[in-house]
């Protein structure tokens, strides 16, 4: 049997603990997230773990594909320390400002250039954008099938078995490769970073590709190649603000309990 080629699409996102520092410039409508530490989008870590475990069980190789600003390189390095064998970094100003459509188009072009892996893993949603669109869209650009929101996975006899979360419950699906899979958190518990692996990972290869390497023109990529455009920002009027309850914990607890009781007695609840 041919060895299994597995790809993982990774997104580098601002650390969710510091999202309050992400702001918008109402004039230019640009989003400012400079200076905020970046992490691998958490569900993408589960995707990576699923890919590495599959490789450990069945052989093959895992390649990471990541599109992002120069700061994403650190996240790619981390992915290599977590078990990926090599990585492609799509780094070019032309990729900037991409929506899900332009992102999927670029990632699909990179995956095609890699000779279409048999299995492609993505997180079911990325943090921050959290549209969940990129995975299914990559599959369309590649002309392959996909399973979204997978919570359990098994690979045997050249077929993939995936339990997916649906609107009515869940479904156990079977699919022939090539397939793209987007994973949910329940699928596994990602391993922690080990220093010895991090040192070994420094020798692993990161290929940096620009838009020219993908054979895509600038109007198919980034902001220009995006399907949606933000053209206005409407700030909400400043909220009125809460009345702050004062006193010791006991007093305050009593006051809250009374407010809830009074509210319930009003017959509304």
């Amino acid at each position: 049997m041919k060895s299994l080629k597995i790809a993982v699409c990774l997104k580098s996102v601002p650390d969710p603990k510091q999202w309050h520092k992400v702001t918008i410039n109402p004039q230019t409508k640009t989003i400012q997230k400079e200076g905020i530490p970046r992490i691998i989008s958490p569900l993408d870590r589960h995707a990576l773990e699923a890919a590495v475990r599959l490789k450990e069980a069945h052989g093959g190789s895992v390649i990471v594909v990541c599109m992002g600003s120069p700061g994403a390189r650190e996240n790619i390095q981390e992915a290599l320390a977590l078990g990926a064998d090599e990585a492609v970094f799509l780094s070019d100003r032309a990729f900037g400002g991409a929506d899900s459509l332009a992102t999927a188009r670029a990632l699909a072009a990179a995956l095609k250039k890699l000779g279409l892996p048999g299995l492609i893993f993505c997180g079911a949603v990325s943090y921050y954008g959290s549209t969940g669109q990129v995975g299914p869209q990559i599959a369309q650009f590649l002309g392959i099938n996909h399973f979204s929101a997978v919570r359990f996975l098994d690979y045997k006899g050249g077929k993939l078995y995936a339990e997916i979360v649906t609107d009515g419950g869940f479904a156990l699906c079977e699919g022939k490769l090539p397939l793209l899979v987007t994973v949910r958190r329940e699928i596994n518990k990602p391993r922690g970073l080990r220093l010895s692996e991090a040192i070994k990972a420094r020798k692993k290869k990161i290929w940096t590709w620009s838009s020219a390497d993908l054979g895509l023109s600038s109007d198919q990529l980034g902001l220009k190649g995006s399907g949606i455009q933000m053209f206005d920002f409407l700030p909400l009027p400043e909220a009125q603000g809460a009345e702050i309850l004062e006193g010791g914990p006991q007093e305050i607890a009593k006051e809250i309990a009374q407010k809830i009781k009074k509210y319930r007695q009003g017959g509304i609840l």
Binding site: L101, S130, T131, Q133
Partner: peptide, 18 residues
């Protein structure tokens, strides 16, 4: 969400979430 995303990619249309 899955159907909207995949269909949008097939016809090359933009899709706004949320």
């Amino acid at each position: 969400k899955d159907l909207a995303a995949a269909t949008a990619a097939r016809i090359g249309a933009g899709l706004t979430a949320h």
